[in-house]
Amino acid sequence: MEFTFDNNIPIYIQLLDYMKIYLISGVFKCGDKLPSVREFAVTFKVNPNTMQKALAELESMKLIYTERTNGKYVTKDEKVIEKLKDEYAITLAKSYFQGMKRIGLGKADSIKYLEGIKE
């Protein structure tokens, strides 16, 4: 997968976003050991310091934790990940409705459009 970054937004915030998706979608599951900062930096093709900053942010959000000398792990608390998924879904839904509002469509109409889309 190629990762693209928008230079207008702090890189660590974009890394945070990629990481959240990894956690929500189960690429890394509860209790999994995470790759090292260096390995992540190589995958995302970013500066290791920037990667470190994103991981520190995930840690302060209690999504991951550090085991002394052993590396970083995904939280064992499934509820935390569920909550993250919920919040992320709400953000996506809100931005959809905002977009529809801009072209003059209300909530009811917007939902109709959603239902009309075939996957």
Binding site: N7, N8, P10, I11, I13, T50
Partner: peptide
């Protein structure tokens, strides 16, 4: 650099 991006948007 990230602080600068954040500050100046």
């Amino acid at each position: 650099s990230d602080e600068l991006r954040k500050k100046e948007n």
